[in-house]
Simulated assay, not measured.
Amino acid sequence: MSDNLFDDPRLTAVGLFFEVHTGLNARFAAQFCKHGLSPVEFEVLMRLARSPGHQLRMTDLASQTSLSTSGVTRVVDRMERDAFITRRACPSDRRSSYAVITQSGLTKLEQILPGHLALIDEWFTGKLPADQLATFLDSLRTLRDAVNPGATAGSSSSEHVVVEV
């Protein structure tokens, strides 16, 4: 390691990660906007679509996204008005409720996903050979589990299912 703190490879690693994240977010946000969704609304729909029963408890949805519990409530309120999500009472805990994707929400995702997958392939996964991509995905899971252990909260039913967006 260099004696020059500004040349520390740890700073380079984090800087590169944020530059990639920012670039991908900009490309994805433009595409979501064309479909009338914000990036967080797309993330919520994807989390629900990929969860058992197409539903998550509101607290688990907050854990899996970058939103606070009150932030999830506001997003779900808005998406409920647009008929993309509905709420369902939790039968075992009256204080909890589930966010559930509706058929309209699934249809919206079906409209967006072909173009979104093309962008992912063009600007992300398609840039790496299969072996590098597999190693990279394993590394991302390791990092995600360390910094955000709640990221898969509520994503398992009787068997362990990992929900990644």
Rank of each mutant, 00 (worst) to 15 (best):
M1S: 13
N4Q: 09
N4A: 11
L5V: 09
D8F: 09
L11F: 11
T12L: 12
A13M: 06
V14N: 04
L16C: 07
E19C: 08
F28L: 09
Q31C: 11
F32L: 06
C33N: 13
K34T: 11
L37S: 00
P39G: 02
V40Q: 09
V40C: 05
E41M: 01
F42Y: 15
F42M: 10
V44N: 00
L45C: 10
M46P: 02
R47K: 09
A49Q: 12
A49D: 15
A49I: 06
P52N: 07
P52L: 06
P52S: 10
H54Q: 13
Q55D: 07
L56T: 00
L56G: 00
T59I: 11
L61E: 02
A62F: 02
A62H: 04
S63K: 14
S63N: 13
S63Y: 09
Q64I: 03
L67R: 03
S68E: 04
S68D: 02
T69F: 08
T69G: 07
T69P: 04
T73L: 12
T73P: 03
T73H: 10
V76P: 02
E80R: 14
D82K: 15
I85P: 01
I85N: 04
A89D: 12
C90F: 07
C90A: 14
S92P: 03
D93K: 13
S96G: 06
A99N: 03
S104P: 02
G105H: 02
L106Y: 05
L106G: 08
K108G: 02
K108T: 13
L109K: 01
Q111I: 04
Q111H: 06
P114M: 01
G115I: 01
G115S: 08
A118I: 06
L119Q: 07
I120L: 15
I120G: 01
D121F: 04
W123V: 07
K127P: 01
P129L: 05
P129H: 05
T135D: 10
F136E: 09
L137C: 11
D138N: 12
L140R: 07
R141N: 14
T142G: 05
L143N: 09
D145I: 04
V147F: 12
N148F: 11
P149E: 07
T152Y: 09
G154C: 08
S157G: 13
S158E: 14
V161Y: 12
V162Q: 11
